[in-house]
Design a protein around this nucleic acid. Structure first.
Lengths: 205, 205
DNA sequence: TTAAATGCATACCGATCGGTCTGTATTTAT
DNA sequence: ATAAATACAGACCGATCGGTATGCATTTAA
């Protein structure tokens, strides 16, 4: 029945690992870092305890690997999107929508929040995730400062405005935990767009 | 030796409860929502298990009460500060510094983050904390829109600019988890101040 | 074809979790 | 003074946690 009849070792490994990553991320979304127990993850993944311990040293190792998995996917998504879009056709509001919908809503928002907060009190996790989180942050910066520059009248540099933008989105992500209203946040993004439009313009080709 | 020799019931109750609140908040700061076990809290508070169960139904009840405790303190702090400051002497950057230093640094930042994130996956906690978090949010709004109004040239209303400000601070709070550099965030606040100054002016007396 | 290596399954472990039960001080009300 | 009510202490509980040890299945290399 299944298409999993003759698989080589590499396929086997990567398939069960991805099943574990996905289940880990789903559990983090559903139960939070606090409530995501190993038993729950294994149950949801349909993977045995032995298989898990064969691939990962301990629970933290799995969680960190899952974080790397989802963040690297996000980095790739950003890169692909920036490349596929016509270089001169990108508008600020399009970028805003893209970043918001891909990284600050749904599962990505949830696990991103959990990882950031968990990092604060878990030094081992922080050491593993800090470079990936920083890389993720930088990848968003690329999609931005490749195409835009600060206006002459604006005495802030373009990086500063971008960081403020990302921080605004982060804050909106937290606000959206208790206030889940896509329309409201679309409006808020538009308001932010109006302000940033005064400071930023498309780069010369 | 101790000054706890002849205390009436009310004093006893409130003293042990406050000890528990403080220990709970410290444990949340030190170990996170995930790692803050009841045993740790009781140990840090110097309170027995029996005393705890006498005052609180269960762990969540204690945590929620501690959250209410710290958030209501913050609301009070904001109110006092707004009242004590000369009504016409408040500058935007002073308000920014006040909000940042009181609510988005130190223990308050840490527990505020933990509570917000924990609320996402714990419905009971959310139901108890949502009104308090909303109240806290509103209290910051007061210190703001009492003294400032949108400039004529600005087509956003004053509440919108304030929400964007708060969200920027929230984002900076998350950023400051992995990048603890007060000077950097002071500069970022100044940049934000420059932008908001273009949109907002002191209210007429 | 066969031995080794890899992938996987289940049973099991001590530790710790939140919560409760029983009994004892201390304060309050009569 | 004394009984009731409140505040507290410590032992104890089943459940669940992350982690491991042993054995079997599958793939790979010889």
């Amino acid at each position: 029945m299944k298409a999993t009849h003759k698989r080589n070792q590499a396929e086997r490994s990567s398939q069960t690992q991805i099943k574990l990553f996905d289940a880990t991320l789903n559990c983090l979304q559903e139960f939070g870092y606090h409530g995501a127990s190993l038993s729950q993850i294994l149950k949801k993944a349909g993977v045995s305890r032995g298989a898990w311990s064969h691939h990962f040293e301990n629970k933290l190792d799995l969680i960190a690997a899952a974080a790397e998995y989802v963040l690297n996917s996000a980095i790739e998504t950003t890169r692909d999107w920036a490349l596929s879009s016509g270089t001169s056709e990108l508008s600020l509001s399009e970028i805003f929508d893209f970043i918001w919908e891909n990284f600050y809503t749904g599962r990505h928002r949830d696990v991103w929040l959990e990882f950031n907060v968990a990092c604060r009190t878990d030094e081992q996790l922080r050491e593993r995730l800090e470079p990936v989180l920083a890389h993720f942050h930088a990848s968003m910066a690329i999609a931005w400062q490749t195409y835009f520059t600060a206006k002459a009248c604006c005495d802030s540099n373009i990086q500063t405005i971008m960081i403020l933008t990302i921080n605004t989105f982060r804050g909106m992500a937290i606000q959206s935990i208790t206030q889940n209203d896509p329309h409201y946040f679309k409006q808020l993004r538009m308001e932010w767009f109006k302000i940033v439009s005064m400071l930023v313009e498309p780069k010369q080709a």
